[in-house]
């Protein structure tokens, strides 16, 4: 009679060991992402040229080159020589289509001629917001600059020049 009981106990134990099936594993997928942007480049198309200006010998004046493509305007004793009307500055920015950019630029204090005479720069400005979006089609943006110069009465003749820098960065 005793032997019969033992057999049943052994069977039960065997069943308990069965969980050789691995417990379910939780899987999760992640994504690795990288965004390669075309390098940003800026090219100068045109300098900021105020053209040729005549200034009275008794009255100073100003010359303004608009950034929107309109012709120059004058005040005081300054007049423009029609044969040399000048032009606004133009730069082309090229980069990733649709990407936002930020523009900054320096403003020279004066323009100077070879003899060392100075013309005061009142201001220089962009043709719109410094925050732009590159074209979604070709990744370009045209940037224009205008400015105003203050001319002294009897400003000495000559070609006056100064350099400025336009900087662009992805936003």
């Amino acid at each position: 009679m005793d032997q019969k009981l033992c057999i049943i106990a052994a069977c039960t134990a065997a069943l308990a060991a069965t969980p050789a099936h691995a417990a379910p594993v939780s899987n999760s997928d992640g994504t690795a992402r990288v965004r390669i942007l075309e390098p940003l480049a800026i090219f100068k198309v045109d300098d900021l040229d105020f053209g040729t200006v005549v200034i009275s010998n008794t009255q100073g004046g100003t010359v303004t080159m608009p950034s929107n493509g309109n012709p120059r305007s004058f005040s005081g004793g300054a007049e423009g020589v029609p044969g040399d009307p000048g032009n606004r500055a133009q730069f082309t920015v090229v980069g990733n289509p649709g990407q936002e950019i930020i523009l900054t630029h320096s403003v020279p204090l004066t323009l100077t001629n070879a003899a060392g005479d100075d013309i005061l720069v009142i201001n220089m400005w962009l043709n719109g917001s410094p925050l732009r979006t590159l074209s979604p089609v070709d990744g370009r943006e045209q940037v224009y600059l205008g400015g105003t110069l203050s001319l002294a009465a009897d400003q000495p003749e000559g070609l006056y020049e100064a350099s400025f820098t336009v900087t662009v960065d992805y936003r």
Partner: peptide, 20 residues
């Protein structure tokens, strides 16, 4: 990538010719 990109710059000139 913009966080890693360097700003780029270009120089321009402002000029005017004065005559009496």
């Amino acid at each position: 990538a913009p966080a890693l990109a360097q700003p780029v710059r270009e120089d321009g000139k402002a000029t005017v010719t004065m005559v009496s």
